[in-house]
Computed example of a mutant assay.
Amino acid sequence: MLSDNKRVLPAGSTILVTGVSGFIGSHVADQLLSAGYLVRGTTRDPTKSSWLPTFFDNKYGKGKFDLITVVDTAEAGAFDSALEGVSGVIHVASDMTFGPDPNLVITPTVASTLNILRAAAEHASVKRVVLTSSCASAASPGLVRAIEVDSWNDEAISQAWAPPPYEPSRGFSVYAASKAQSEKEAWKWYEESKPGFVLNAVLPSMNFGKSLDPVSQGHPSTSGLIQGVFHNDVETVSNNGAQYFFIDVQDNALLHVAALLHPDIRQERIFAYAAPYTWRGVQKVVQGLYPERPLGPEFPDAEPDASTIVPAPRAEFLLKEMGRDGWTSLEECVKLNTEDLV
């Protein structure tokens, strides 16, 4: 972690984290609390997130974490009270339904992103805003290419907005387009509006790794795919997870914190791609970690994605600046993702 005198926001500042109960959001909050910040987290459904205040109170003490409800993040004024006294914002919340209708996914996702940026601009206390984008904002899996700092997934945008019918097979393209369009619109707004805060974006690849609380949180989002490999569920994993690049969720969360606090990160897209993976490769890691477990059907062999992620070394450098040795390996990441399952 950066020393106190290098951070652009002092410890003890309040940071707003949207989508705080999700896999990424909960780890972002955990990293911030560990670094001495106060966290105000938003959730759409407080009943599903009720475990989080108890978890953080027990880990860091009462009064460090506050959970608030924002049902409709695209509604004007939704974040006004949430931003009172806030020094930084990490906007993680997004539509993860993979619905195929772009009008129901892309339009509100873009509106939510612009809504929180505009609201933050009205609060002079806000000095930094970090947007959780996605590797899908730059490109979709399946085509070997060089990913540059200015790469955008225009192909997914075209696919997402093709005329109906909106078949379920279009779900990933709609999701990818929602991330690409919301990030594009965020940068456009930022350049035109010139607010008083610094904007950065993090583009994570597939997130694997530990759950904060396996009992209460389970294995949410993409961490559930590693659970599927552990349980030899070849069909579900193969049908729901592309073979692309991964990042450990704690590394990803720390890069978000870097984007919030590091003085040298300004108007930057951080490409959080650790390394390529295949499901057969993950299965071999699980076999090596738990040789006594019965082996189910093997995942089909596949070649790892050979795309070149030009900005990835910059992200790893920033990770080291934050105190890590570098990217968490696939082996360690899978171990963290499965050790509570044994």
Rank of each mutant, 00 (worst) to 15 (best):
G228E: 06
A274N: 01
P10S: 13
M1H: 09
T18L: 00
D4S: 15
E235I: 15
G36T: 09
I157A: 11
T107F: 00
V28H: 02
V39M: 06
V28S: 03
A124N: 14
L295Y: 12
P53V: 04
A160L: 06
S21Y: 10
T47V: 14
N337V: 04
D72L: 00
A201G: 13
V70M: 00
A136E: 10
T132V: 05
P311N: 12
S137Y: 01
G218R: 15
A121D: 07
D264F: 09
E185G: 06
T97W: 09
T47L: 15
V20K: 02
T328C: 08
S205T: 07
I24F: 08
V8D: 10
T113R: 05
P163R: 11
S94N: 02
G196F: 09
V71I: 00
A124W: 02
N153A: 04
P297K: 14
V249E: 02
E155Q: 14
I116A: 00
A35V: 01
F208A: 04
D150R: 06
K210L: 11
L318D: 05
L143I: 11
L319T: 05
Y175T: 13
P220I: 15
E298W: 03
Q181T: 12
E167F: 15
S21F: 11
L341W: 09
H262F: 03
Y37G: 05
S94C: 02
